[in-house]
Structure formats: C-alpha cells, structure tokens
Amino acid sequence: MAKRIDVSDLDIYYSKFLAVEGVTFSVEPRTVTAFIGPSGCGKSTVLRTLNRMHEVIPGAYVNGKVLLDGENIYDSDVDPVNVRRTIGMVFQRPNPFPTMSIYDNVIAGIKLERTKGVKRDRASMDAVVEKSLRGANLWEEVKDRLSRPGSGLSGGQQQRLCIARAIAVEPQVLLMDEPCSALDPISTLAIEDLIEDLKERYTIVIVTHNMQQAARVSSTTAFFNLAGIGQPGRMVEMGPTAKIFSTPTEKATEDYVSGRFG
C-alpha cells in the first residue's frame, strides 16, 4: 500500500520569490527519507509540495512534476483533497484540534468521508480509534480518557495523537516536518521508535535539523542548501544515509554533516 514518489525538476515559488529551484529525487516505498540542511534552505517547502499543502499559502505555486506511483499530483484533473488524504502530514508543532476530544481528533479525518458500504457505526469507529492510537504507540496512555480534550496531553503525546490522526485515514505516505523539534528527549525517542514501526507500512519523509536523528531513523538522506546568499535553495545530494554521513560526494555536505557550518 505504500507508494513511491518521483519528483522531477521542481521549482517552488512564494508569489514571485523562487524559494527552491530544480529539485529532482525519488523516494522508495516503505523507506524513511530524511531531509537535512541549514534552516531556511527550503526543506519544509519541498516537503509541503509533496501533498499540495504548499499551495494553501496565498500566492504560492510550483512548476514541475511530483509523481505518486507514476501519477502526477499536479495534473489538472487531480483533486488536492484526495492527494492530502493519500499523503498524510505531521507538523512541527503538535496541532490537535483544541475543541475536540482525543477520540474525535483521531476520527476527524475519517468523519469527512462518507463512503457507501463502509460502516461508520460506533463500534467500527472505536476500532479505528484503537487501531490508530496503537499504531501511534499512544493507546495504553490514553485509553481511559478518550473523551478528554486532546490539548490536555503532554507535547509528545499530542504529537503522537497527531500521528494517530494522520494514519487513521490510512494514507500511503507520511510527511513529517521536524516532528520532534518541540519535544523533550524522551518523547523524541518515543516518536523515533514509532517511525521505526511505521516504515513497515508507510513511505515516510521526515525533515529534521538533528543529524543524529536522521542517522538513526532514515535509510536515505537528502541534503539541502542555499545555492548562495539570496539565491534559491536546492538539493545538494541524496543517497544512502550511511554514505551521506561518512563519505558524501559534495564538499558542502561534508562540511555540514561534520558540523563545520549550519
């Protein structure tokens, strides 16, 4: 069920501002790909183009192709609503809906879709909630307080709730934008363990500013950098994580992973 992503020659704009230029790469199904690079070089921007969240920002648009199992998600007959359902996203800051209970947060996405033949009775919803929360390693912690507001959880729990919410709609791909940057080390470990489990079933792309984290969770790593001061960001190189961190091809990558700048 996980799908592959092929990005070719993607230019990403905020109105007139070209933020990222000429990005080309592929992501294999059921792998974890990490985006690393100094801040402001366009990691989040690239990530958000993968599920058409980029165009939510007024004036933002892209040129180029993003293929999901061969289908260009920027084709004119593609419905961005379907794209986002297929490609789930977890944000930097945990964002459970504050007025909803834990339970309602998990089923928020599924409740939108009312498909013929799919039962949406209480029992099947209960099942989805349990499955998703177990999938996010959160079930044991919250099973006795599902009707409490999601905003009452700790930061790490909230982030796992957001992951549960994202996987409840059974996406093909999960995008994560620095999911641990607002969390303490223990919660970070919990999320990293979770990513380890999730990659069995999903294609995962994760942005992280933490190189140890990239090394721990990803099989492939892409390094982004600005082409120069005042110039657009670009992907410098991409390869197996082990290689990027030991023997990268580019000098800039080596400088960055060895901590010489950024």
Binding site: N51, M53, V56, V81, N82, V83, R84, R85, G88, M89, F91, R93, N95, P96, F97, P98, T99, M100, A108, G109, L112, E113, C162, R165, A166, V169
Partner: peptide, 25 residues
C-alpha cells in the same frame, strides 16, 4: 494557522476546514 493547515492536511475541503478548525475555535 496550525489548525487550519491541520484540517487541510487531513484532506478537508475548504468548507470542512472552516467547520473543523475555524468555527469551534
């Protein structure tokens, strides 16, 4: 905007986003 984007990222239409993220808040 986190709530707005959270709703959109779940595959909500604009109106569903309004009902899910804007009105309750």
């Amino acid at each position: 905007s986190e709530h707005v984007e959270g709703a959109l990222a779940l595959g909500a239409t604009r109106w569903e986003m309004v009902r899910m993220a804007v009105f309750p808040f």
